[in-house]
Nucleic acid binder design. Structure first.
Length: 263
DNA sequence: ATCTATTCCTGGCTGC
DNA sequence: TGCAGCCAGGAATAGA
């Protein structure tokens, strides 16, 4: 499941191959992934030169001289450089120097071209890695609901998904159902600091590979070995030894320590 | 405003 | 080497 650290790792591993280079041809094959039309999109990016590859939250932007190619990896999307193709290949973007490939088993991802960025993309919130404390804190205060759904809300904060939210709430000892608006300033400072430490450490480890995730070279991340609660149902809490509990919050499997993370 | 449920989709797993 | 049924979840969407 690509979240901020995985998407950042993908961007870093793809950028050196494509920045400054020109798309020679493109073949797109999934109308679910490329909703703007397979032929039209392929035609629009052909001949374009990549100026930069950027990430905001889980969104990837290839800045082109004629617009932007937008990629969201969804659940099972992969961007690969010079890899073999398979039944889940949804796009091939040829450069003189090599091939950028988009694979996606479940096709929850997107690969689109936009001449100008549409409003629904602009609506995405500030990046979790760089959001300043004051913006983060006032966002928490303004929210009436639970903390976990808020942290998952990409319009509020871009980049966190189910894995890193569970890990973050454990690191800051916050219950996933805690009322966001009632978090103290001190606890919010801890959440904010732990969030950025967690994400930076996960990037150093090239992300978490639970099932499908690999970077542009097809290599798995290593951070899953450092997960403390995600997927650890029934195992001992690394802090206190209590069994890790799994509940459903916001329709997501949620892992936490009932002793360390009090309601 | 904020919640829950549903939808999309496929592979992996369980149980027969 | 079957096969039905369930589960995983990012994000949009509908309805409460």
């Amino acid at each position: 499941m690509p979240e901020l650290p995985e998407v950042e790792t993908v961007v870093r591993s793809i950028a050196p191959h494509v920045v400054g280079r020109t798309i020679v041809s493109a073949t797109l094959s999934s109308p679910l992934v490329t909703r703007g039309g397979l032929e039209e999109t392929a035609r629009a990016i052909t001949g374009a030169t990549v100026g930069a590859v950027r990430r905001r939250g889980k969104q990837i932007f290839f800045d082109l001289n004629c617009g932007v190619m937008y990629v969201h990896l969804g659940m099972t999307g992969k961007l690969l450089w010079d890899a073999g193709t398979g039944k889940h290949t949804r796009g091939l973007i040829q450069f003189k120097e090599g091939t950028l490939q988009y694979q996606d088993i479940r096709q929850f991802g997107r690969l689109e071209f936009f001449a100008t960025l549409p409003n629904f993309l602009e609506r995405s919130g500030p990046d979790a890695l760089t959001i300043d404390f004051q913006t983060f804190y006032s966002g928490l205060r303004a929210h009436r609901g639970q903390i976990k759904p808020l942290l998952l809300n990409q319009a509020f904060l871009g980049g966190l998904g189910n894995i890193y939210v569970d890990e973050l709430l454990f690191a800051a000892r916050v219950h996933p159902k805690a009322a966001a608006g009632r978090i103290s300033r001190k606890r919010a400072e801890l959440l904010h600091r732990k969030m950025q430490e967690l994400l930076e450490l996960a990037i150093v480890h090239r992300g978490s590979s639970i099932s499908d995730y690999v970077d542009a070279r097809g290599e798995r991340g290593a951070f899953q070995a450092l997960h403390r609660v995600y997927g650890k149902t029934g195992q001992s809490c690394p802090e206190c030894g209590s069994p890790i509990r799994r509940v459903v919050v916001a329709q997501r499997g949620t892992h936490y320590c009932p002793r360390c993370q009090r309601a």
